[in-house]
Amino acid sequence: MSGYFSSSVGRKFFMALTGLFLVFFLLVHLIANLTLFFGADSFNATAEFMGTNPVIQVMQPLLALGFIAHIITGIILELKNNSSRPIKYTKNNVGANSTWMSRNMIITGLMIFAFLALHIINYFIPIKTTHVENHYELVVGLFKNPIYAGIYVLAFIFLGLHLMHGFQSSLTTTGIRQEKYQKCIKTLGTIYSLVVALGFISIAVWFHFA
């Protein structure tokens, strides 16, 4: 098994597993955030649950590890792939054979990472280090700031683009892909990416203007 994970194919499998774990996490996170629409009481209850539920407490460090592993493996992958063609083409018509999303996973990924850092500074650290009475107020207050809301929307556009390729790519990497499922996988990937990106964006836009 150690030979497996040090091979190119094994490393990609690890990338896909961490990616799929993050895909699952995003769905949970989105559902939690959507309770904002039901008002302060329900969101504060959700925040309370997230802060105290033992399963969530166990998952939090795992999630951090998952993120770090995904990012480090992604950067190693990118460096290796870049060095595999030391002299580039003078003319390369990449648009003819692949999507922008599939070619720029490192860019969309690093944008998500930049947002993640901001999110941790603005929300995660305050709620862990100080006693926040009203999570709803904290979150809605952040969305009122046009710069924060703008960055938030942009970040989730990048996330949507990352997932548009990442979702279906991970099912090829893990070997789940088969001819008969492929159409379904692609549709599911598009729906998932749109729901997640537009879900988070709609929250930011709504509370910015509300």
Partner: peptide
């Protein structure tokens, strides 16, 4: 380099070899 499933190969392959084979390779390994 390492595959990131961009699918450029499948489009340019003169014999139309499908990406489904890459999924099979990953399963086999």
């Amino acid at each position: 380099g390492n595959c990131t499933n961009t699918g450029a190969c499948e489009v340019e392959c003169p014999k139309g070899i499908s990406l489904n084979n890459i999924a099979r390779l990953n399963r086999e390994y």
